[in-house]
Amino acid sequence: MKIEDDVLAGLIDINSRVLDVGCGDGSLLLHLKKNKRVDGRGIEIDQIKVQESVAKGLAVIEGDAEKDLINYPDTSFDFAILNQSLQQFYDPRKVINELLRIAKNAIVTIPNFGYWKVRLSLLIGGQMPVTKTLPYTWYNTPNLHMCTIKDFYNLCALDNIKIVKSISVSSEKISDIQKSNLEIKNLVSELGIFLIQK
């Protein structure tokens, strides 16, 4: 388990209904099923990963969240998880709002483009940054809409989305993000994890 998965699991209530959007091979869902007894569902675009999830006994649908979220009824889940894929959508704003239509809570994690190493790479190196959380080069990256933790805060404000909990992950360490430390956390965090509601 990656440290961010532990943080995610910590945000989820026991026996809740969970939709993991972009669930990959289903390891997080399986962890939640075993440890939080959640009633879990997943959506994943990669067929091989869907097969791996299904073989774990998970209910996972092969599909494109951008197109398929519309098919889920309102508040059919307690939690919708979007783990490090927000930046890959054509319309991330719409996706976030869809998540909050389908679920009472959404948990969104983003690789922070405001992280100092990322800033430095562009500032000093003059090249598009390649880091642990952003391992791609500019010509093959699936990431279309990179954002910083601060950007995410701004979008939530714009759409009247309440940030219930906001967590920074940096060098395997976690800490809380608050309005008061936002500037510094935006600089030192590799990842931001947000529990949001509408």
């Binding site: 209904r17 569902r41 067929q47 869907v50 097969q51 999830s53 299904v54 073989a55 998970l58 209910a59 996972v60 649908i61 092969e62 599909g63 098919n71 889920y72 009824p73 059919s76």
Partner: peptide
């Protein structure tokens, strides 16, 4: 999904058309 049933779904990519379920289709078997 609308009734919250436990459902998995896979579309197997193949050239074998409707008959795919009757032939050698490893992704289907998996």
């Amino acid at each position: 999904n609308a009734i919250g049933a436990e459902v998995s779904f896979v579309e197997i990519v193949t050239n074998n058309g409707h008959d795919s379920f009757l032939v050698n289709e490893p992704a289907f078997f998996n």
